[in-house]
Design a protein around this nucleic acid. Sequence first.
DNA 1: GTTTTATTATACCGTTCGGTATATTTATAG
DNA 2: CTATAAATATACCGAACGGTATAATAAAAC
Lengths: 194, 194
Amino acid sequence: MNKAEKTKQFIVEMTAPVFNEKGYTGTSLTDMTNATGLTKGSIYGNFANKDEVALACFDYNLKKVTTIIRQELDKQKTYRDKLLVYVHVYENFLKHPFPIGGCPILNTATEADDTHPLLKQKATDAILSWKGVIMDLIEKGKDNGEFSEDVNAEQTALTMIATIEGCIMIAKLTGKMNYRNTIMQSVEKMVNGL
Amino acid sequence: MNKAEKTKQFIVEMTAPVFNEKGYTGTSLTDMTNATGLTKGSIYGNFANKDEVALACFDYNLKKVTTIIRQELDKQKTYRDKLLVYVHVYENFLKHPFPIGGCPILNTATEADDTHPLLKQKATDAILSWKGVIMDLIEKGKDNGEFSEDVNAEQTALTMIATIEGCIMIAKLTGKMNYRNTIMQSVEKMVNGL
DNA sequence: GTTTTATTATACCGTTCGGTATATTTATAG
DNA sequence: CTATAAATATACCGAACGGTATAATAAAAC
C-alpha cells in the first residue's frame, strides 16, 4: 500500500461518517477538507470528483457492517443462532464498530432513490445481497432440519430486513432505546417461530 | 381564504413533491421557482425562509397520508379490519393520492435526524402519533373481544410501523412490487394472529 | 546526490446558493 | 375613479458551491 492508496483510504475513513450523517448533497467539499485536514487539491489529486469519494465512502460504511455481521455469524453454530445474529448486532450496535450516522443502506436508499442512480444501485445491491445471505441461512437450516420445510425463505428474509431497517429509523429518530429493543424482540420471536 | 393564503397554499402544493423527492438540502430555491412558476421574491413574500416552506410541505405531505388512512379506517367496522387498512393502503398506494417521493416520515427521518432539529421533531411527532393510533385500535379490539388480552399493543404497533416503513424503503429502492406484497403479507399475518 | 515522479497546497475559476431591497404590478377600499 | 395596501417581479448581495490549473513539496528511482 503506497502513499497514494494510504491517503485515499485516509480520506475515505475521515469523510465516511460525514457522508453517512449529512448525506451526499448535505456534505460539502469544505466538510471534507475539515474532516481530513487536507486541502481540496489533495482530495482531488486522489479522487476524480465528489461522487467518487461518496461511492467509496458508502462501500466503506457498508463493509463496516458486513464485517461485524460475518464475524458474529462465524461464532454461531446453529442456523437459528446465525439468524439471531442480526437481532443481537442491531440491538447492541454500540458494542460494535458501527458506522456513525446509522445504517448506510437506509440513509443512502432514502436520499438517493430519486436523485442519485449510482448510489441507488449500490444500496440496491446491498439489500439484495443481504436478502441472499439470510435466504441461504434459512435454506440451509431447512436442509438441516432446524426449520420447518414450509418456511418461505424469501418472505422471511425480506420481512426481517424491513423490520430491522424500520427499527433503526424509529429508534434513531425518537431516541428511545426501548423501542428498538421491543421491535427487535418481535424479530427474535419471528426467527424462533421458523 | 384571501389571495395571500391561496398563494401560500399553492406554493406548498407545488413544492411539496420536490421536497419529498430531493430532500431539504437537495431542494434549491431554483427548484422552488421552477415548480411554482413564481419568482424568489414572490415566495419570500409569503414565507420567511426556505425552512418555513419545508416545514409546511412536510405537514402537507403527511396530511395526505393521514387523510387517506382516516378515510379508510372509517370504512371498516372491526378493529382487525381497521388494522389491516395500513396493509392495504400501503400495498395499493398507487390507488390513493399518495405523496410523490414516498413516505414523508421515512424521507424526513433519515435526512433530518442528524441535521435539522425542526424537521426531525415533526417526523418524531408523526411516528408517535401513528403509534398512538394503532395502540388505540388494538386496545379497543381487546376490550371488544376481537384480540387476545395478552397482546402487547405497543410492541405490535411499533413492529407494524417498522415493517411498513422498511417495506416502503425496500420496494421503492429495488422497484420490485412483489417484494412489497410479500412483506405486507407478513404484516397481514401478524394482524390476523392478534 | 540528483533527477524524475508522485503528492499536496495555493489561488483562483464560473456558478449557484439562500436571501433581500426596491420597483412594479395587481387587488381592495373608499 | 382614485388612493391605499398587498402581492409579485427585478436586480442584486455576499458567501459557499464543486472543480481546476499551477506552483511547491515530498517521495522514489537511478
